[in-house]
Simulated scan of single mutants.
Amino acid sequence: MKRLLLFAVAGGAGFLVDAGVLALLLHMTPLGPLIARIGAIAAAMLFTFWLNRTFTFGRSDRSLAAEGARYGGVGIGAALINYAVYSAIVLAFPALWPVFALAIASAIAMLWSFLGYSRFVFGPSSPSK
């Protein structure tokens, strides 16, 4: 239960980075909400990798490169789910504040992330190692 709570805290912090970068890009650049979200996702993913590796799950016995590649794979899958839901909401409801769509999409992608990170990234390595 503690791990799930720490994961939620890391996810909440990642959400703040995601939303902050999205809001900053929307305010400071001519990028629209769909393109700006890509940069926001990347920033949040790097931040949550550090948080989850340091506080939530701890380091696995894999190399940093292997762990990072696995994290990226799970994270990209979660980001695709997140982005698809976000895009569908933004396109279906153009008057809606994009950060609200971000919150809904992030909540949906959270389960995928937790299962992937806890089992595939930071879980025990295969017996053949």
Rank of each mutant, 00 (worst) to 15 (best):
G14D: 04
A84T: 15
I38R: 06
A78E: 05
L26M: 05
L80C: 14
F57K: 11
P98K: 10
V99R: 06
F15R: 12
S106K: 00
M45H: 08
G20T: 08
H27F: 00
S106A: 14
Y71V: 02
I104A: 15
A107Y: 05
L102W: 02
D61G: 15
I35D: 10
G72I: 07
T54C: 07
L16Q: 04
V9K: 06
A65N: 01
L34D: 07
A92I: 00
Y83W: 11
H27Y: 05
L25H: 00
A88I: 12
R59S: 14
V85W: 11
T56F: 10
G75D: 12
E67G: 06
G39P: 11
A79V: 04
R37M: 03
T54K: 15
F15L: 14
A43S: 10
A8F: 11
P33Y: 03
L64A: 15
G75F: 12
A95G: 09
I35Q: 09
F7C: 01
M28W: 14
A69S: 14
T56L: 09
G58A: 12
R37Q: 07
L102T: 03
L24F: 10
G68H: 13
A19C: 01
G58C: 02
I81D: 05
A79G: 11
A43Y: 02
P98H: 12
S87N: 00
A10Q: 03
A103W: 04
Y86C: 00
A42P: 02
T56W: 00
F100Y: 13
V90H: 11
F57A: 06
L26E: 05
F47P: 03
Y83T: 06
G11Y: 08
L102I: 04
L46W: 12
A36F: 04
E67S: 07
F93M: 13
F49I: 03
L22W: 03
A8Y: 13
M45Q: 13
G77K: 06
G39T: 04
A36S: 12
A8V: 08
V85Q: 08
G75M: 12
Y86I: 04
A10L: 10
R70D: 12
A43H: 04
A103L: 12
W97P: 02
I41W: 12
V90C: 11
L31M: 09
G12L: 02
L25C: 09
G11P: 08
Y71P: 04
G58N: 14
A88R: 11
A19R: 03
T56E: 14
V85M: 07
F100H: 10
A43G: 01
L96G: 03
L64S: 11
R59L: 07
W97S: 00
V74R: 02
F15Q: 09
I76C: 08
A107P: 02
G20H: 13
N82F: 01
F57M: 05
V21D: 00
A69Q: 12
G12Y: 07
E67R: 14
A84Q: 10
L22H: 10
M45W: 07
A66Q: 15
M45G: 06
I81M: 09
G14Q: 10
L24G: 13
G68E: 12
I81Y: 07
I104Q: 06
F55H: 11
R70S: 15
